[in-house]
Design a protein around this nucleic acid. Structure first.
Lengths: 118, 118
DNA sequence: CAGGATCCTATACGATACTG
DNA sequence: CAGTATCGTATAGGATCCTG
């Protein structure tokens, strides 16, 4: 971290792009909450997630699920019942987000302490 | 993870709130980029950060810096030069975000591979 | 049940110009 | 240099109702 050369700046920009890639996938008000809901229960249905997350509307849940599926973080499994049952699960790729979610959780706890105490 | 009791659901909601706390602090298009810029260079000035981050406007940089300072992630140090020099540094608390930023970086790299390849 | 369609508002963000 | 002020647009997100 001592050498602030042009090369260093290039590396920094490359890192930034990667971080932005992650944020592009995780952006929005509910994405992490949706992932967490599915992650905690392993398998979760639309109406379940709707009740897990306080305040989310079906419109937004639908939208977030689509984006997560597009980014291959979750899998949408349609069972041919009457009426249809839809189960959402994390993909392997989605599972790799657990570390980040856990870190966000731990950091959030510490942050709350800092802000309330300080 | 096997016991989906009411207690389990309470725990889950508590975790969600902590994760949301983190996201509330990190939300917005530029917050992580700003933190990273300061983090990489240890000490960084307004115009420096402006040139570090492609596309950010001075209005947004100003806004993001204020929010980060409000949340005690960065420190604003004014030197009485002519004209004034302002240096931004990470607080100790801000430094604890390094883990998350690194994780986002690593995950972003992997994600890009997955999406481009798949 | 699992969403889609429609309408509406708030705010996030960008561009530009200006100031001590 | 380190911002602020002003204006305008785009998007995110909420509320409600509808459907196979």
């Amino acid at each position: 971290m001592e050498c602030k050369t042009e090369n260093f700046k290039q590396e920094y920009k490359k890192e930034m792009r990667a971080v932005q890639d992650s944020m592009d996938v995780l952006h929005g008000k509910w994405k992490i909450a949706v992932l967490s809901s599915i992650c905690y229960y392993n398998k979760r249905r639309f109406s379940d997630i709707l009740s897990d997350i306080d305040g989310i509307s079906n419109r937004m849940l639908s939208k977030e699920l689509k984006e997560l599926e597009f980014n291959k973080l979750i899998h949408r499994n349609v069972l041919s019942t009457q009426p249809v049952t839809v189960e959402y699960t994390l993909t392997e790729h989605g599972n790799t987000l657990k570390t980040i979610i856990n870190n966000l959780h731990e950091w959030g706890v510490e942050h709350r302490k800092k802000i309330v105490e300080g």
